[in-house]
C-alpha cells in the first residue's frame, strides 16, 4: 500500500443502486414449498436445468423432464426472516427488523439480510420487486 497514494475511484456498477436495492421488496416464488424440520425449516424449490445439461441427462436416461426439486435448509434465523417476507416489506425494513430482533449492528444486519436474500434470489426462491412497481 502506498502511504500517500490517491484513493482509487470505484467503478460504476450496472443494475440496482444501493438505495434502489434497499427499497425493493422481496417476493416469494409461488413454486416454493415449506416443510418444518427439527432445527428450522426446509424450502423445496424447482431447480433450474440448463438446456445442454437437460438434453444430455435425457439422452442418458437420467432425467424424465419433470421439474427437479432441490431443498434448502433454513436455521432459526433464516426461518424468522422467511416469515417476514410478505411482498410488501422492503429490504431496508427487513434489515431493521433483523437488527431489532437479534440486537445486531445496523450494517451487520443489512449485510446479513442482503446476503441471505441474494442466496434465495440465486435459487429463484424470491424475486425483488422494485419500489417503483409497488407504488405504481
Amino acid at each position: 500500500m502506498s502511504l500517500f497514494g490517491r484513493a482509487k475511484r470505484t467503478a460504476e456498477r450496472p443494475g440496482l443502486s444501493r438505495e434502489e436495492a434497499l427499497a425493493a421488496a422481496p417476493v416469494r416464488s409461488l413454486s416454493v414449498s415449506e416443510t418444518a424440520s427439527d432445527e428450522g425449516m426446509i424450502l423445496g424449490y424447482p431447480a433450474t436445468v440448463t438446456p445442454w445439461f437437460g438434453a444430455l441427462a435425457r439422452r442418458l436416461g437420467l432425467w424424465d423432464g419433470r421439474p427437479m426439486i432441490r431443498r434448502l435448509r433454513l436455521d432459526a434465523m433464516g426461518c424468522t426472516v422467511w416469515s417476514w417476507i410478505d411482498g410488501r416489506r422492503d429490504v431496508r425494513t427487513l434489515a431493521a427488523m433483523l437488527a431489532e430482533r437479534y440486537t445486531l449492528h445496523p450494517r451487520e444486519a443489512e449485510a446479513s439480510m442482503t446476503a441471505f436474500l441474494r442466496e434465495l434470489g440465486k435459487r429463484g426462491i424470491i424475486a425483488l420487486r422494485p419500489a417503483a412497481d409497488r407504488s405504481g
Binding site: 436455521d75 432459526a76 437479534y102 440486537t103 445486531l104
Partner: peptide, 9 residues
C-alpha cells in the same frame, strides 16, 4: 452472534 441463535441448540 446472535448468541441466542447459536446457543439455541
Amino acid at each position: 452472534g446472535p448468541a441466542d441463535v447459536l446457543l439455541q441448540f
